[in-house]
Amino acid sequence: MNFSLARATLIAEADLVGIAGERAVCDRRGVLYFPDLRLLCVSDLHLEKGSSFARRGALIPPYDTGATLLRLQAVIADYQPRIVISLGDSFHDGGGAGRMHLSFRERLEALMAGRDWFWVAGNHDPDAPADLPGEMVKELAVGSLLFRHEPSKLLRVEGEIAGHLHPCARIVQRGRSVRRRCFAGDGGRMIMPAFGAYTGSLNVLDRAYLGLFNRDTLMAYMLGAERVFAISGAMLRPG
C-alpha cells in the first residue's frame, strides 16, 4: 500500500465507521471511502439532470453536470482511489451520457483514467453510458461488501452498500430545525447520500425506508460544512 502523507492525515481513526468488518470514511462531501481497499464509492450523481428537464421545457441552469464533476474531481484528488464505484443513477436518464457537453465528457474521462471504474446499473440508467469507459455491472461484491443501487428487501444484511433513496435527516436543537443529507447505516447496511448537484433528498424516517434498518442501531451521518456529524436514530425527526 502506498499512502501518501497527505492522504494519510486526511483520515483520522475516530472518523472511521465499521460496515461488516470493513473500515470506511463517511466523507462530509457525500462519498464513502474504504482506505484498506483504496475504494471510493459515490452514489446518485444524476449527471445531465438539467438537460433532462430542459428537454421537457424547464430550462434550469445547465451547470449541474459541471458542478457535480468538479466536486467529484476534488474527492478523487484527495483520496486517489484505485477503484471507483458509481452506485447507480449516474446519469439522470439513458440519453444523459450522449447529451453531455464535450468539455464535461473529457473531464469525466480524465477522472476515470488509471483506475478501475464501475457503473452500477440504476433505475434511471439501467444500461451502460454511451461511449464511456468503465465496466457496467448490476451489482458488485468486494470482499464482505455488496454494492448495489437499490437496497435489497432483506431485513438483515451484512455489508450492503446502496443508494437510490437519497437520505437526509433532520434534528431540532434549541427550537431550530436543521436538515442535511446524510449517510444512513445500522452497522450492517449503509445507504449513501445522493451526490448530484440537483438531487433532492428524502428523510430517513420516511415510509420508504421501512424495514431497512435496525432502529436501535440506526445512525445518521449528517453532512456538515467542516465534518460529518454522527446522530443517533432516536434524535431524528420526520419531515
Binding site: Q173, G175, M222, A230, I231, S232, M235
Partner: peptide
C-alpha cells in the same frame, strides 16, 4: 427572538456531542 446566523453546524455539533456523551 432567535438571531438567524450561520450557526446551523453548531446545533448539529451539540446534537452529535449529546450522542457521544450518552454513548
Amino acid at each position: 427572538e432567535s438571531v438567524n446566523g450561520g450557526a446551523n453546524d453548531t446545533l448539529l455539533m451539540e446534537a452529535a456531542d449529546l450522542v457521544e456523551e450518552a454513548m
